[in-house]
Computed example of a mutant assay.
Amino acid sequence: MKTLILALGLFWAVAAHAQDQSNRVFQNFAKGTKLLANIKYGEHEKQKLDIYWPENARPDMPLLVWFHGGAWRMGDQCNDMSYMKNTLNEILKNGFILASVDYRWSTQQVFPQIVQDCNMSLEFLYQNAEQFGFDKNRISVIGFSAGGHLVNLMALSANNQKSEFIAPSSKKSFKIKCVLDFYGPVDLISQTKPEEAFDHESPIFDLLGATAYERPDLARIASPLTYVDENDPPFFIVNGEKDESVNFTQAHLLSSSLSLVGVPNTLTIVKDAPHYGEYFDAPEIRNKLIAFLNHYGK
């Protein structure tokens, strides 16, 4: 334990030197939070992650891993954090370490490499859990929009032996304890708007290399809903009532499908809320999230 604490102290000293230049959201975290930024989990420049420790960090704490949104084709590991700052601080205050992951955009790779990156990042964290001071058997995930789709896809497909979702240079040893899904698409066919059915500039086209209507077979492979079964982890599902990008029916579809096979889940549709923003950092949602995370993530 002494060796671990000394190692973490070294990491934090190095991180303190660079964090102001490399992380635009660290200022939103509580005083005493420690950050190690831009840890490489792969060779590509986008295959990196940040780790945040609470002031009272101790060995073997549970880990929550953050996956950003951006229509699969923009953003980085700091996305979505600026409007969720109260929730972020409550997560750390409640005894969790937080990691936030960047991944190659859909315009930089071919599906399913984007989900391979996400699985690779979790495997990296699992394999280095002792080094970074968290419990490798208590890893949960949280995702927003495209990131919600990716955490849903990772968690739901884990029981289905989808070897193509694991990078050839990696493996899958980790298990996801629970999932926090904020407005992630779950069925890419019903997610497709009529005006995007054959739009080769749409986010889904960039993700799949075709629209869902042109390649329904590929759309089903990339749809989290395809993999729902009774062995899936618990889900905390949130969507805006007036979400213009991911209709709240996607959240209902996921919740109903999980309930039908007996998987614990909670569904919150936020009144008047759009696709993202401070609506989702409200106390009532934050309190529900922390209660869920304390129950299923620890």
Rank of each mutant, 00 (worst) to 15 (best):
K2G: 02
H17N: 06
Q21E: 05
Q21H: 08
F26G: 07
A30T: 15
I39D: 14
Y41D: 15
G42C: 04
L49A: 10
W53K: 12
P54N: 10
E55H: 11
A57V: 15
M61W: 02
M61C: 12
W66V: 11
C78K: 12
S82R: 15
L88F: 05
N89P: 07
K93I: 04
A99H: 00
V101C: 06
S106V: 07
I114Y: 01
N119Y: 03
F124D: 11
N128Y: 09
E130T: 02
K136E: 13
S140F: 09
M154W: 00
K162D: 15
S163P: 03
F165D: 14
I166C: 01
K172E: 07
I176F: 11
V186Q: 02
Q191I: 00
K193Y: 08
D199K: 14
H200E: 13
S202F: 09
I204E: 00
D206K: 03
D206H: 03
L208N: 07
G209E: 10
A210M: 01
E214D: 04
R220A: 13
L225A: 14
T226H: 11
Y227L: 09
N231P: 04
D232V: 08
P233R: 10
F236H: 04
N239L: 09
N247P: 07
N247W: 00
H252I: 07
S259Q: 09
G262S: 05
V263P: 10
V263Y: 05
V270D: 07
E284N: 11
I285P: 05
N287V: 01
K288W: 12
H295L: 07
